[in-house]
Write a protein that binds this DNA or RNA. Structure first.
Length: 867
DNA sequence: CTACTGGAATGACGA
DNA sequence: GCTCGTCATTCCAGT
């Protein structure tokens, strides 16, 4: 442990850095921290300053501040309980300690959380294999509070898989989730866990219990083995992992880099941990060690490996070592080791320390740099379960593979392209809880890569972006792993619902360290990808539409591009109240002659009221049958003289992205903007735009939840006059927000949950701001560039501090169940409350149900929060 | 033999 | 309580 602690300390510093960033920017690991946001929690004060700083830090890795901040941050982190082990300890330990522990923990635990299970398996392999991390994780894992208990069940499963593998597969059922958990759980608290498991297990969760109970009983076949958890598989995975092996480290980090020397130094000092980076990009190694061990990191290496550094590798590689290390303190061992190897690569990367959290919305371009997806992935890709073999890499429409290129980068330093699987719903883009990127290896794979775990649950695939390749990467090494809904839903902080939440987006990030010491982080997300077996074949999918807005009288024609459209596909416009009630629904006229399997030409129906003083957000969806609806697509009716916004055609996806953030939504660009903005925006924010935005958002949004799926509208906004978009939005956002309305999305994003998923929240003060705004909205509109860019990242910080508004986001989700996790943060549950998101697509009915659930949960949650 | 796949069986759920 | 449709997850088998 000490080692760990030490690391922690060391990290701490880093942390600090990260923290700042963290919020927004922090890397996953930090995420937790971030999320924790610490910021918010512990030191709000710091916050402010920090926030800013963070923001700054964000950019620049360097932020000195870190240290001071750290402290608080730490705490926060702890809170989340990223680290399992720590957690355990934590319980006992005073805050301070926790922090430390936290630090240590970080990595692993967090991951474990979801990942564990999830990842684990999938990644597991890698991760697991790689390190015993898993184990470590496990131990670490648990989140503090909640998680532990809750998680444990899962976790165990999950976790176990990862690390556990090592640990115990055997436990198997008995423990309950034990296996996985075991580690985690045990550590955690032990206490709870057990309980938990049992309880929770109740259902579903997963693995164990979840569906196939029988398994337990014995009947269930497959499960059996794994008793509890599916996770078990984890165990399996571990094996798999082998691939991972070691390597990862190697190259990773390298790229990044540089960051401030200072930072580096700090980092080094810290150790690797890299804490920071871990999250994002980083070099695995460093992280690994530490991270991995702890946090994030674990990774698989790739084949490519050359990169690896021997040193690192060594450490990593040796399984034995690793394992041991991990648990104990990863830290210790790793830290030490790491250095060298890491040094080069990692260090730099670490720099990045402050990388923005994965749920932060980042612009796709900034200044001369522009991250673009030259070749989009196919709209359907059947994800594989842990229990299955890989289903291959995500392919491009044309048969090749997605291609991502960083334009405008003239340096000779290679960079690391990070890839993770994000959500494709209306809400802000964030790591998908039920899907993880899966590293594909083999002869057919030409692109080296390695996996890393962020924070807790999100696996990140790091791919080198080399100048010699024109900073272009062919992503043929990324598959998608599906985690069991039951495993994920049990997580303590998880608020999302897995059922029907089968759409994802590939999210690419690159962190460019500049001479100034700043790090520019860019992000771009792909078009939505349907990952289910069935839906891929039947559900209509809307990729984009030619219009974002239309005067209330309708009549304009909109071309909808997508997939699985049929001759009898219907396009239905609906408006729902915040409470989910249908206010209006009408079917648009579809020009059958002009419609094709991948496009529909429809005439916008007149809005129910021709007298609009402000834009009204509604949604539309394509329907192939009763249960075959596309996700909701946001659409905005504007007062009659208002200009119609056209969506950007393809680019939407690409370019516009700037904000990528938009990410949320499926549709790429358009919608999301707001969301994106939100976080970031906050920072800058100018009020201006916001107002505009709001209208949209507000109007439309019915309920926080699902509300409308598509954010698209927002994007449009961009088109509109929004000048300063984002920033404005943010500021405005808060204010603006209308009470209910805001787009759910934004809210959502904000919310953070437990695990850190939603980091942003951290910034925002939960309660206070919460109501406020949803800055985001505005953002969306803006594209990446301008406002954002790096800055964007930075922004967050501010926002956080100030605006808390983001809080607005908070409500977005209400966690259905008990996600009480939110509370973990300590922040007021209320805000925190996260709601599970619903997949946009869900049928309304489904949504309605969900809403109901959420309401219930919320009420419950508050309670939980205490706990 | 492994990695992919496509297809489909099995169960759980909810209506 | 039963049936049916949907989904999620696991299996199988072919390439």
């Amino acid at each position: 442990m000490k080692s760990a602690e030490e690391e922690a300390y060391g990290y701490t510093p880093n942390v600090s850095l990260s923290l700042p960033l963290g919020n927004p920017c922090l890397p996953s690991q930090y995420q937790s921290l971030q999320s924790s946001p610490t910021i918010s929690v512990s030191e709000p004060h710091g916050y402010d300053a920090q926030d800013d700083m963070r923001a700054a830090g964000y950019y620049s890795s360097s932020r000195p501040n870190g240290a001071p901040t750290l402290e608080s941050p730490r705490i926060e982190i702890t809170a989340y309980g990223q680290f399992p082990e720590d957690e355990v300890e934590e319980s006992n330990l005073p805050v301070a300690k926790r922090l430390n522990s936290i630090v240590t923990l970080t990595l692993p635990s967090a991951d474990s959380y979801r990942d564990p299970s999830c990842l684990s398996p999938a990644s597991s392999i890698s991760s697991r294999s790689c390190h015993s991390d898993a184990s470590s994780y496990e131990s670490s894992f648990s989140y503090n509070y909640d998680n532990s208990p809750q998680n444990s069940p899962w976790q165990s499963p999950s976790v176990s898989p990862k690390g556990s593998t090592l640990t115990l597969p055997g436990d198997g059922c008995t423990s309950g989730g034990s296996p996985r958990h075991s580690p985690s759980s045990s550590p955690r608290t032990s206490v709870t866990d057990d309980t938990w498991m049992g309880q929770r297990g109740s259902r579903p969760n997963s693995p164990c219990g979840a569906k196939r109970k029988y398994s337990f009983n014995g009947s269930g076949a497959s499960h059996k083995h794994y008793p509890c958890s599916p996770n078990i598989s984890p165990g399996l995975s571990p094996h798999t992992s082998p691939r991972l092996s070691i390597t990862e480290e190697t190259w990773l980090p390298n790229t990044n880099q540089y960051t401030n020397s200072a930072i580096l130094a700090a980092i080094n000092a810290l150790t690797t941990d890299g804490v920071i980076d871990l999250g994002e990009g980083i070099p695995v190694k460093a992280r690994k060690t530490s991270l991995e061990h702890s946090p994030t990191v674990s990774l698989k290496v790739e084949p490519g490996g050359e990169e690896l550094i021997s040193g690192e590798l060594c450490q990593d590689k040796h399984p034995s070592n690793r394992l041991p290390l991990k648990k104990e303190g990863y830290c210790g061992g790793f830290l030490d080791v790491p250095q060298h190897p890491y040094s080069w690569s990692k260090p730099k990367q670490y720099i990045s320390p402050s990388l923005p959290a994965l749920d932060w919305q980042l612009p796709s371009s900034s200044g001369p740099y522009s991250l673009q997806i030259d070749v989009q992935p196919k709209s359907h890709h059947r994800a594989h379960y842990e229990t299955e073999g890989s289903r291959g890499a995500v392919k491009a429409m044309g048969g090749g593979h997605p291609v991502v290129q960083l334009h405008g980068y003239m340096e000779s330093e290679p960079l690391t392209l990070q890839l993770f699987i994000g959500t494709a719903d209306d809400r802000l883009l964030r790591p998908h809880a039920f899907y993880q990127v899966h590293r594909i290896t083999g002869k057919t794979v030409s692109t080296p890569s390695h996996e890393a775990l962020h924070n807790n649950n999100t696996k990140i695939l790091e791919i080198p972006l080399l100048p010699e390749n024109n900073m272009r990467a062919i992503v043929d090494c990324a598959g998608i792993l599906k985690l069991r809904n039951s495993d994920i839903e049990l997580r303590k902080g998880e608020t999302d619902i897995g059922r029907k939440n089968t759409r994802v987006r590939m999210v690419f990030r690159v962190h460019i360290n500049q001479a100034t010491g700043r790090t520019v982080s860019l992000q771009v997300s792909s078009n939505p990808i349907e990952c289910s077996q069935r839906s891929a074949q039947e559900l209509p999918l809307v990729d984009k539409r030619s219009l974002e807005t239309c005067p209330a009288h309708g009549g304009e024609r909109m071309l909808i591009d997508g997939h699985n459209f049929q001759h009898d596909s219907k396009v239905v416009f609906v408006e729902k109240a915040q409470d989910g009630h249908h206010l209006w629904e009408t079917e648009a006229k579809v020009d059958r002659d002009a419609s094709k399997p991948n496009s529909l030409l429809v005439e916008i129906p007149p809005y129910r009221s021709q007298r609009l003083s402000t834009p009204v957000h509604v949604n539309f969806y394509v329907c192939n049958g009763k249960r075959k609806r596309s996700q909701y697509q946001r659409f905005t009716y504007v007062p009659a003289g208002a200009p119609t916004i056209k969506t950007e055609p393809r680019d939407d996806f690409d370019a516009p992205l700037v904000c990528s953030q938009r990410g949320l939504s499926l549709h790429p660009k358009p919608y999301f903007p707001p969301q994106v903005m939100a976080p970031m925006m906050t920072s800058d924010l100018r009020p201006c735009v916001t107002s505009d935005l709001r209208p949209y958002s507000l109007a439309a949004k019915p309920s926080p939840l699902p509300a409308s799926s598509s954010p698209s509208t927002s994007p449009k906004l961009h088109d509109l006059p929004l000048p300063p978009p984002f920033s404005k939005c943010l500021s405005a956002g808060p204010q603006v927000q209308h009470p209910g309305q805001q787009s759910p999305i934004s809210h959502v994003s904000i919310i953070q949950e437990t695990p850190g998923r939603y980091q942003l929240p951290s910034f925002y003060p939960p309660s206070s701001s919460s109501s406020s705004s949803s800055p985001p909205t505005s953002q969306p509109s803006t594209p990446t560039d301008g406002p954002f860019s790096p800055a964007v990242c930075v922004t967050p910080a501010h926002p956080g501090s100030g605006n808390a508004s983001p809080g607005a986001q908070q409500h977005p989700k209400v966690p259905p169940r008990g996600r009480g996790s939110l509370q973990e943060d300590g922040s007021p549950p209320a805000l925190a409350v996260s709601i599970k998101q619903e997949p946009q697509e869900l049928d309304q009915m489904y949504l309605d149900d969900v809403n109901e659930i959420i309401r219930n949960d919320l009420s419950t949650i508050s309670v939980h929060s205490h706990a």
